[in-house]
Nucleic acid binder design. Sequence first.
DNA 1: CGACCATTTGATATGGATCAAGCGATGTGG
DNA 2: CCACATCGCTTGATCCATATCAAATGGTCG
Lengths: 229, 229
Amino acid sequence: MISQSAIQSRSFKPDVHAKSPAAPGVTAPEGDAIAMMGAPMTFKRNAEIYGENEPADYLYKVVTGTVRTYKVLADGRRQIGAFYVAGDVFGLESGETHVFSAEAVTDSKVLVVKRSALVALAERDTAVARQLWSITARELQRAQDHFLALIKTAEERVVGFLLDMAARVSGSNQFELPMSRQDIADFLGLTIETVSRTMSQLESTAAIELPSSRRVVLRNRATLGRLNG
Amino acid sequence: MISQSAIQSRSFKPDVHAKSPAAPGVTAPEGDAIAMMGAPMTFKRNAEIYGENEPADYLYKVVTGTVRTYKVLADGRRQIGAFYVAGDVFGLESGETHVFSAEAVTDSKVLVVKRSALVALAERDTAVARQLWSITARELQRAQDHFLALIKTAEERVVGFLLDMAARVSGSNQFELPMSRQDIADFLGLTIETVSRTMSQLESTAAIELPSSRRVVLRNRATLGRLNG
DNA sequence: CGACCATTTGATATGGATCAAGCGATGTGG
DNA sequence: CCACATCGCTTGATCCATATCAAATGGTCG
């Protein structure tokens, strides 16, 4: 069944005033159309950003906080598609409607851009077209990695997840998990009990340390790398 | 471990003579740059089309036959990423090298196009750019569907697979599976025994019929739809 | 302090994997 | 053209990783 927090679907109208776009050539080599055109919005913890089956009219870029996308299956289980942290782009779908829902995991600030504005811009600016394509390609990469993870053992999934999070939210061996055990379980296709047990076991073998349930210290990268399959 | 048929990696040089591309506007509304520019190649059953980690210099479109992409994991298990049938495009990667290997499941004919030629063309022709993007988007869609399938039960995975294949290779309720049970198992993240047992069970409940091991008749779509989750 | 969550830990159940034959179709050499 | 080897598939018996059910613990906030 659905874990917790079933937030009622609200639609919203971000106050997007697309600035007239920089002409091609004026755009920086690493020009980020979303950052330039995006309107900031904030979402409180567990607030819905968009819902499954809503029209995919906007594109989002995380400034601060963490966002999860998810889908509730027919039998009521929730599968989390991805977590997005600062710098990540989400909400770009192939079709006209969102396939996943999106919620803020923590209080979050995101930039919002009208999709049609970017697509229109891409017609004239090859760099923007390439950027949009590369966002989709990165998403594909992530989906493939995720699905390869799902055929591994519980321990490999958890270790892989911790290594990935370490790289994305800190770059060091020590970091704070922004999400609950339930979120992790729903992301990895495991139960909360299995996630908890696996982490306890990793701690008992000195591979990691858990000063608190959300705080993780990677103690032994060599071991973790081996456990990652 | 790897199922059967470890084909030795051969590199190949498709004889691609990119015809000078149609000018934008001359391109048909549904213009298919791959079909226009592609050089036909044939591959025998189980022949390698490209290998993991090889440079992703070409893009492929299936004309006849079936192709599988796969990855061999550290522990030796093989995970099939996707099956491609007539009309499907494969081989377009985000990076410079292939993340999966590709093999012909049956004797196959494919069109081959140099990636760089298409990317160059996309710089000038927005329609081609959009086409490339949409190929990646479709692949993302497929990867997401696949990964949602992996958290379902064995029966749901098998039923989902049969419904998908029916839609893709025939459109009717009766079709020939181009791939072995081992291929199906490696695609669905199950063992060959579980796939076989599940099919037998579906037959015993009159949901499907199996005139031969490769031939499938969908007997009861209502039941199958329900079993699909 | 007390209520409420999130997390951990323990006991048991189970779906699918693994181990092990058997069977049917296909193809090959004698 | 038959005998036998091979390969792909099915079926049976048992095992095990993870789910499920249940309870205790710990952390947070009014």
